[in-house]
């Protein structure tokens, strides 16, 4: 990839990738930081980046790994500082999606990533498996569990609306 091609790719893909990483992290600043860092690493390691069949997937993979790493470090730090850490209020883009973003953040990173890659990035199970390095069966399981977990966190109406699942405990 030439310098001009890289610059054009960066300008076009950055906003889209930040949106995807925002869905993953629930934090605007975090999403921009990890995507920017991923682009820097892409140019720093051009050999590996150029060899990738899907440059955008390469960036997204690096960015999500950075986000997971930072999340783990932050969580460990918070656990050290305070025993009972109040959950952060995620500043969602709009009140109608605050609950969804908050519910997403409750998911384990692997499930959250599978859900975002499938529903936001429109990747198939096989593509998600290739991007994450997990077997296809594992990806399917993560998607299923992710959706089920979202259903538990959301209100019954929201859960039914968004995930298509209905709480079994609800009396008819």
């Amino acid at each position: 990839m030439t310098e001009e091609e890289f610059d054009a790719f960066y300008t076009a893909a950055f906003p889209r990738l930040v949106g995807q990483l925002y869905a993953f992290t629930g934090d605007h600043g975090e999403a921009q930081d990890v995507v920017q860092e991923a682009f820097v690493r892409a140019w720093d390691r051009r050999t590996s980046f150029d060899a990738a069949q899907a440059p955008e997937a390469w960036i997204r993979t690096v960015a999500t790994r950075l986000a997971v790493s930072r999340f783990r470090r932050a969580r460990r730090w918070l656990e050290l500082v305070r025993a009972d850490t109040p959950r952060e209020q995620v500043p969602g883009p709009g009140p109608e999606h605050v609950a969804l973003v908050a519910a997403l953040r409750e998911l384990p990173p692997a499930q959250r990533l599978a859900v975002v890659l499938h529903h936001v990035c429109d990747l198939s199970v096989e593509q998600i498996a290739a991007e994450t390095g997990a077997p296809a069966g594992t990806v399917k399981a993560r998607l299923a569990r992710g959706r089920a977990a979202l259903a538990r966190h959301l209100s019954p109406e929201e859960a039914e609306t968004m995930t298509g699942t209905k709480e079994a405990t609800h009396a008819p």
Partner: peptide, 29 residues
């Protein structure tokens, strides 16, 4: 829930909702 894509409206709504979240999360370079 074991299917890769939840069939029907539910999946579409989840997809639409998540895509709206991502759309609203976009930022320029």
């Amino acid at each position: 829930p074991t299917g890769p894509a939840a069939p029907g409206e539910g999946a579409d709504r989840l997809t639409n909702a998540l895509r709206e979240v991502a759309e609203q999360g976009r930022r320029p370079a």
